[in-house]
């Protein structure tokens, strides 16, 4: 390596230009993807797990769908 620090300058500039040119490769994804894993609190169970549904997810979803019908009065009128 040369003894003068400024002599390193062109190399540094070249490195900077190269890395700037490569910056397009590190694009930020357009779709928001939630990254699980940063949460530091207690673990929680899913609604169908330690409840009356005993792990049956399909039954739970069905129950909710059925329940949601009550929010439209059209389901009961004609």
């Amino acid at each position: 390596m040369s003894r003068h620090p400024l002599k390193r300058l062109p190399v540094l500039v070249l490195a900077g230009v190269l890395s700037a040119g490569l910056s397009a490769c590190g694009e930020v994804p357009q779709v928001t993807v939630y990254e699980q894993g940063q949460y530091r609190g207690k673990t929680d169970t899913r609604p169908w797990e330690d409840s009356e549904f005993k792990g049956d997810r399909a039954a739970w979803e069905k129950a909710l769908k059925q329940r949601a019908r009550n929010q439209s009065e059209y389901n009961r009128i004609q």
Binding site: W48, S51, F53, W60, A63, L64, R67
Partner: peptide
Amino acid sequence: NRLAQGKL
């Protein structure tokens, strides 16, 4: 926790 009871 109503969701766990299948309620909304």
